[in-house]
Design a protein around this nucleic acid. Structure first.
Length: 813
RNA sequence: GCCCGGGUGGCGAAAUCGGCAGACGCAAAGGACUUAAAAUCCUUUUUCCGGCAACGGGAGUGUGGGUUCAAGUCCCACCCCGGGCACCA
């Protein structure tokens, strides 16, 4: 056949039209095949896909296609994280309805997904702003409300003035909003809905162990730190006079004889009782200045209350201070300061001339000398100057002292977590309405299950900040109380959109169920997700909420798995010409632009080839050109060689088939192992180099085998090209319906082993020998080699190291 | 400050178990084809020294040390870059 020129648009448009409305890639419902659930994080429908999204989906799609060819029943779905602020902001900026805006974006992005050739089962598409989806958010909320897992309280919350709404702790980055990196988060006291994720803190932490094989270590580490479990004790210091207890949390009871003051957080409830007049103003200033500065660069500031509290162990009177570095939100909001053994306390006490008293010495050293002390000694050691506890190890002292506090009822062992309950109220429009009603008579009343969904009204005027736009929709707000029938008001806050994404992947298993979020039997078949793929930026937001939601649903009896995903892969970011892509820099490469210039196949191949999937990838047009060159070389090679060659086997056949099977082995190993698809593509390029050298001398049967297997190998990476070449060869399609070819280890093996000769570790030559040549023979061969002998002249051979089939190293003196 | 990653040609990178450093690609230079250009194909391309040349020799994976017959790979110390956490008691 004559060689054809590669035209990406012609080929790709032809196949996308043929595929357009065909029910392809649908997961089977009752299959005898083993299942495989591969999932990429669903996108926010911002309007257009760019090459960063495409990397994520390309990795997942390669895997999905490979697994199908390997005989798995593959579930590979896609959906839309369609609630959220940008829709609302676009509504304000462009006077467009959030619903219309979102719908339009989804249609456009779906078109781009299809054009990229991603093999999704579109019959399972999930859109989170669809009432048939978010009604189940509301349903879960009611279940949690019943069980006390959802509750309302007035709390200090993170407020972003730019978003005009509350943020969860997870959404605060460096003291600023995660969306508005230069907008400091304010603290405001507001009535809020919370989900009791802290009930699961211990389990979320313990469950990390089961994820160690399949999740990246750093994600698990970030989650561990975020949960922040610490074991210690709570101890009461009683105020002199009133006798009121000040409860402190400490991980180091063993240092309690070294405590020299008690410090309260400025927001601590006792502060109001202990200070008055001028001092009250100072405390207020302390709170405000901390809020204004944000974390990191705060100088320690303190104020003596004039009161004293009694150390329950030593009986000593300690001054009670207020300190800006003590956090109301952690532990009990009060600490005992042990300056000799805690660096923060050390700094504070130095600053205010409070006593410093070392009571723990290193196991093999002496107690610190006050005069030379430059910093606190924070390690465990041996306790001294501590009454009857002196001489005990820190660990032993903690145990005994905690027991005493418990026995005498002035304290107890305690565990504190850094993670807080998940605040889900948002004073915004474009989200799931929280299904509760406030009745003047009955108080807070949950919306009855039968009244779900509480539908978010459309065509709502948006604008103004600080109150939910729903407040301005009387037909939404005003409602009869479901209990007493009297006029009542609906909750106007909506849910954090991380609620939507906490369980969407369950809905994919049963997307059209109208009587339940899903059928448990279907979940039992598909779950856990075999491979989840997404960006590392979700390590503690989405991925911790999802784990919580899974455990909550398990406890509702809906599912039996405790973790959502067996394996997680976090792909690296895509940058452009060495810089992060951003709208302001104008260097965002859209999918459409990329497809027009290079085609979907080239885009996919280049994104995989440039580097390994977990690393940051730099998109350059020059690099994409290289991938384009490869795709066209393959196309031309196949079209000009199809049907060529004589009937007799040739020497070239052997070489070409060996390379073919070596390539197949490489790619199979990459899929089964490290996912280093950059080496898969490199191997395919290497194969093409060998084939173009040998093509004139190949026989017809060899060409047929090569073209067939080459096409099958291309399928996960360049599906359009593979399909086109399959058709060119007159084979029955589609390619993705065929089995992945097995490599033949015999054919893949090199004929001879090349053995490297070293003298004192330096490369001096190489010889070819039969595989498995005995060590003794090798040694003799090498020592007799004409190149080697002169190098040994006048030297003494000390040792000869032989690594069979690989290397001989002669050590001489 | 603490905890993770990472540092290899002009560039993106490879080297999976301690055994030939730089596969594969980009860019560059030279050549073929062409009236010319594009496209395509061929050759060279870590660096220094010697040679007209095939070739030979030395150095080389952030820096310094160590283990080993052998180190990009293992150990110790340090430097730089990226990310996470950061008054969490």
């Amino acid at each position: 056949m004559p060689e054809k020129q590669y035209d990406h648009n012609q080929i790709e448009l032809k196949w996308s039209e043929r595929w357009a409305n065909a029910p392809l890639f649908q997961a089977e419902e009752n299959s005898s095949k083993p299942k495989f659930y591969v999932l990429e994080m669903l996108p926010y429908p911002s309007g257009t896909l760019h090459i960063g999204h495409i990397r994520n989906y390309t990795i997942g799609d390669a895997l999905a296609r490979y697994k199908r060819m390997r005989g798995f029943n593959v579930l590979h779905p896609m959906g839309w994280d369609a609630f959220g602020l940008p829709a609302e902001n676009a509504a304000i900026a462009n006077n467009r309805d959030p619903y219309e805006w979102t719908r339009y974006n989804i249609e456009n992005m779906k078109r781009q997904h299809r054009r990229m050739g991603f093999s999704y089962d579109w019959s399972r598409e999930v859109t989170t702003c669809d009432p048939e989806y978010y009604r189940w958010n509301q349903w879960f909320f009611l279940k949690m409300l019943e069980r006390g897992l959802a509750y309302r309280k007035n709390a200090l919350v993170n407020w972003c003035t730019e978003c005009g709404t509350v943020l969860a702790n997870e959404q605060v980055v460096d003291g600023c909003c995660w969306r508005h990196e230069s907008t400091p988060v304010e603290q405001r006291a507001i009535e809020q809905w919370f989900l009791r994720i802290t009930d699961y803190a211990d389990e979320l932490l313990a469950g990390i162990k089961d994820l160690e094989d399949g999740w990246p270590e750093r994600v698990l580490l970030m989650q561990r730190n975020w949960i922040g479990r610490s074991e210690g004790a709570e101890i009461d210091f009683h105020l002199e006079g009133s006798g009121k207890p000040i409860r402190v949390f400490t991980t180091r009871v063993d240092t309690i004889y070294g405590a020299t003051c008690v410090i309260l957080a400025p927001e601590h409830p006792l502060v109001a009782e202990l200070v008055s007049g001028e001092a009250k103003v100072q405390v207020k200033q302390m709170i405000d200045s901390r809020a204004a500065k944000g974390p990191g660069d705060i100088e320690k500031e303190g104020l003596f209350t004039g009161s004293y509290a009694v150390n329950p162990f030593s009986g000593e009177k300690l001054p009670v201070w207020i300190g800006n570095f003590v956090l109301m939100g952690y532990g009990t909001g009060a600490i005992m300061a042990v300056p000799a053994h805690d660096q923060r306390d050390f700094e504070f006490c130095k600053q205010y001339n409070i006593a410093i008293r070392p009571v723990v010495r290193p196991v093999d050293g002496a107690l610190a000398e006050l005069v030379t002390m430059k910093e606190a000694f924070g390690d465990d050691g041996v306790v001294e100057h501590s009454g009857s506890y002196s001489g005990l190890s820190s660990a032993e002292a903690r145990r005994v002292m905690t027991a005493k506090a418990e026995a005498e009822n002035f304290g107890k062992a305690a565990v504190t977590f850094r993670i807080k309950d998940w605040g889900i109220s948002r004073q915004r429009y474009w989200g799931t309405p929280i299904p509760v009603i406030y009745c003047p008579k009955c108080g807070m009343v949950p919306v009855p299950e039968s009244d779900l969904p509480v539908v978010l009204p459309l065509k709502v005027p948006i604008g103004g900040k600080g109150r939910s736009p729903l407040e301005n929709v009387p037909e939404f707000v005003n409602i009869a109380c479901p209990k007493c029938g009297e006029p009542a008001r609906r909750e106007t806050d909506t849910m954090d959109t991380f609620v939507d994404s906490s369980w969407y992947f369950y809905r994919y298993c049963d997307p059209h169920n109208s009587s339940a979020p899903f059928d448990s039997k279907k979940i039992a078949y598909w779950f856990p997700i075999d491979q989840y793929i997404g960006g590392v930026e979700h390590a503690i937001l989405h991925l911790i909420y999802s784990r919580f939601w899974t455990k909550m649903m398990r406890d509702l009896g809906l599912i039996s798995n405790s973790e959502p995903a067996k394996r997680l892969f976090t792909q690296g970011m895509v940058i452009k010409d060495g810089a992060k892509m951003s709208k302001s820099k104008g260097n965002v490469v859209s999918a459409d632009e990329m497809i027009e210039r290079f085609g979907a196949d080239t885009g996919r191949v280049f994104e995989l080839f440039a580097t390994s999937p977990e690393r940051e990838m730099d998109w350059t047009d020059a690099g994409a050109n290289g991938a384009y060159g490869f795709i066209s070389r393959v196309y031309r090679f196949v079209t000009r060689n199809f049907g060529q060659g004589g009937s007799e086997p040739t020497a070239a056949d052997k070489k070409a088939l060996r390379k073919l099977h070596q390539t197949l082995r490489q790619i199979t190993d990459d899929f089964e192992g490290r996912w280093h698809f950059n080496t898969s593509i490199a191997a395919l390029m290497g194969l093409m180099n060998v084939l173009t050298d040998l093509e004139k001398d190949l026989s017809a049967p060899a060409i047929a085998e090569i073209l067939e297997k080459l096409t099958l190998m291309l399928e996960p990476f360049a599906p359009y090209l593979a399909e086109e070449l399959w058709e060119e060869q007159g084979r029955e399609g589609p390619v993705f319906g065929h089995a992945w070819p097995e490599y033949d280890p015999e054919l893949a093996r090199e004929e001879e082993a090349e053995v490297v000769i070293q003298v004192n570790g330096k490369l001096r030559g190489r010889i070819n020998v039969a595989f498995g040549t005995p060590r003794e023979t090798l040694e003799k061969l090498v020592l007799g080699d004409t190149k080697v002998r002169p190098l040994l002249d006048g030297k003494q051979v000390v040792k000869v190291i032989v690594v069979q089939d690989k290397l001989v190293n002669i050590v001489v003196k």
